[in-house]
Write a protein that binds this DNA or RNA. Structure first.
Lengths: 243, 243
DNA sequence: ACAAGTGTACTTGTATACAAGTATTATAAC
DNA sequence: GTTATAATACTTGTATACAAGTACACTTGT
């Protein structure tokens, strides 16, 4: 691995983070971006050397990434699974599942506060678009959905979200960075879908919510190929993990 | 903590397990059984002393239990959350959610192999009942549902199951042990519900599946009070964590 | 009596050492 | 050339040491 390479994960999100968290986030980005290819065997000792930390934070990272299903811990070494089209479909299955569940609870609640919070986040997203800040946009996008999920106060649904979130976040980060470069016009549609989502919550309109959610997902899924192509570009010149 | 106390988690399920796994499973049982009360603050050093291991396996256990939502890691010490009625309801929400999702996939598949596998597991359950083996019965009960979930080959649904499973398993273990002593007649209904479930899969009958799932859950949920009463009995004479 | 500073006893995160186990390779015997 | 055995280089899990940080109590001065 190229030691002089800059980090993929936004460093300002890691200001107070431990070495273990840094390794976890960076390794996750390397895997999801495809820079570390699916099938690669990761060694604790090698990773410790590459990241210039001891085995303790590496072990922590591997345990977490294994629970996120992007690596598989075997008897000797961790095998990279990564995110293929199939996994991305599956992640959106789960998001659809939990956001639908959440919506069923929402329609029985007072959603004024939530709608205000979501509107704020959406405005943040618009500002991020205006200044072409892909990382900030991704952060607000993830926050948007997390706010909805948190609002129903369901600890086990939140648990699922917490397990899914890091992988989602990494994927969205990479996807949005690519679009700011190559598909800037996409953002109009994304904003419109989020407006639709807020509208659905305000009107407690089940069908509208499902519609906006689906369109949001279709947007992302349809663009996966582009993302991988873009990844190839990004990872050009990077030395492989197993040399 | 009483050092001479026997273990709550079946020791034969831990034959090849590491110290970290043992601590994780035993601590989980102590928390879910209520022997370690909700609100208790756990210290890594104290736990290490109590379990007679170093901090490494303890840290591992605390990280896992935190991801399972039964403890909360704070700046200093881990706070026990435990399983109240609310959490149990939530767990069953999630089970209903994922098993419904799985069923939608099942109806589009060839389920012959699955039905055979489930029938085998159900027979195992019957044998466990006959010999009053609560632990074996719990194992097969959990396996029954895991087999269904695995059959659709969805890695992120399986991820949710894997996060939920340990807590479920512990809860079922405690619940079943209690019933073998005090509510032996319950098992007829449980077996009948599982037969209904198999029937639903065979006939690809959505409504029947939901019905059997609901009845199964209602069975368990209705009995929660009894369980906690029973727990009080079990934990009588056990010294508290914070002494 | 009370505020401010000091010290002590904890905490977490990381590094490192070591035992035990497992693949792989090399060597020797046939 | 093939098989059995031994040596090696790795692996994992655990223990332990240590640095840095945090909470709490205890002085000490006012």
């Amino acid at each position: 691995m190229d030691e002089s390479r800059e980090f993929l994960y936004p460093s300002k999100w890691l200001l107070k983070a431990s070495a273990g968290d840094r390794v976890t986030c960076e390794l996750r980005m390397l895997i999801i971006s495809g820079e570390i290819e699916s099938g690669t065997i990761l060694s604790e000792n090698k990773l410790a050397a590459d990241f210039a930390v001891s085995r303790s934070p590496i072990r922590e990272a591997l345990k977490i990434l294994a629970s996120e299903n992007i690596i598989r811990l075997e008897r000797m070494g961790a095998v990279v699974i990564g995110l293929s089209e199939k996994e991305i479909d599956e992640i959106y299955d789960v998001r659809l599942l939990i956001e639908s569940f959440v919506f069923e609870r929402l329609v029985k609640m007072d959603t004024n506060e939530l709608v205000k919070e979501l509107s704020k986040t959406l405005e943040m997203m618009k500002v991020a678009i205006k200044y072409s800040d892909a990382d900030e946009f991704s952060y607000q996008d993830v926050l948007f959905h997390e706010t909805i999920i948190r609002s129903v106060n369901h600890s086990y649904i939140l648990m699922i979200w917490n397990n899914l979130k890091p992988v989602m976040e990494s994927f969205i980060l990479l996807s949005m960075r690519m679009r700011f470069k190559e598909k800037y016009e996409d953002f109009n549609r994304i904003v419109k879908n989020h407006e639709l989502y807020i509208e659905a919550i305000k009107a407690k309109d089940r069908d509208l919510m499902i519609k906006s959610l689906h369109e949001n997902f279709d947007d992302v899924q349809g663009k996966v190929e582009d993302l991988w192509m873009s990844q190839q570009m990004l990872s050009k010149g990077v030395v492989q993990q197993n040399d």
